[in-house]
């Protein structure tokens, strides 16, 4: 039977649409013209300028501190939440599920705004700590959802088998369940880490003086000129993303 070719051509067009701006951006990062106009010759000076920019390094450092701490905390809290949601079917868990699910859907600007008002109402000084608190808040939900989907595939008879063979509840959990769930927790952590690295809107609302993160720095560079340096930075971030995504996909295939 002849299949329609429309889906194939749509997909092709969509991929061109996805990558055309990114390719032009990458090409422009080697263009020796300040505003990315007509081709002015090949240069790497934007990359050199980028590596000499101290503010970028400082912003990167802040970003990494927040992303790693927020990931650690949200991995622990989110995994516990996923276990609770998977194990119990009570009214409390129904409310709990709603609380975990809502931050995934609510637009960033609302979350940023409400947290800003919360910190202002409590007279908390805005800075790295408030950014950390905000990031943990949205990361918990992502970790919980990823781990929960892993738990739903888990065969609980394995736990019973371990206990029948004499393992205590804790031993069975630690030696049987945890290793099988670990890839899910790691995947949730990776997602939380990336989301924290990338977050701009929520961070923008709850950041204070001296707590500039990389996305905030990129935004201010966009607003106040220096487009050529952003091109160079974008190319590096794109490469990092590409390597991370490919690596996590190969890792997952190896596990399966």
């Amino acid at each position: 039977m002849k299949r329609s070719r429309i889906p194939f051509f749509t997909t092709l067009a969509v991929l061109v649409f996805f990558y055309l701006p990114l390719v032009i951006l990458s090409v422009n990062s080697f263009n020796d013209s300040r505003y990315g106009g007509p081709w002015n010759g090949f240069t790497v000076r934007w990359y050199v300028r980028l590596f000499q920019d101290r503010q970028i390094w400082h912003a990167l450092q802040n970003t990494l501190i927040i992303a790693s701490t927020a990931t650690l905390v949200s991995m622990v809290v989110g995994t516990m939440a996923a276990f609770a949601l998977n194990r119990y079917r009570t009214r409390l868990q129904m409310v709990h599920y709603g609380m975990i699910y809502s931050p995934l859907i609510v637009p960033d600007i609302l979350m940023g705004m409400s947290l800003l008002l919360f910190f202002v109402a409590l007279n908390v000084k805005l800075g790295l700590v408030t950014i950390f608190l905000a990031h943990v808040t949205f990361c918990i939900s992502y970790v919980a959802m990823v781990v929960l989907s892993r738990l739903q595939d888990f065969d609980f008879s394995l736990m019973e088998a371990a206990q029948d063979l004499g393992a205590g509840h804790w031993t069975a959990f630690r030696r049987v369940m945890l290793p099988l769930i670990m890839p899910g927790i790691a995947a949730g952590g990776l997602l939380a880490f990336t989301l924290s690295l990338d977050d701009f809107v929520i961070t923008f609302f709850v950041s204070g003086p001296g707590s500039t993160t990389l996305p905030i720095h990129i935004y201010s560079m966009m607003k106040h000129g220096a487009p050529a340096v952003i091109n160079a930075l974008s190319v590096i971030l794109l490469l990092v993303t590409f390597v991370l995504v490919s690596a996590s996909r190969t890792m997952r295939e190896k596990i399966q």
Binding site: L25, P215, I218, M222
Partner: peptide
């Protein structure tokens, strides 16, 4: 997974 500021900036 790409930073969305960069995707907007590309346009």
């Amino acid at each position: 997974w790409t930073n969305f500021l960069i995707r907007i900036f590309a346009w």
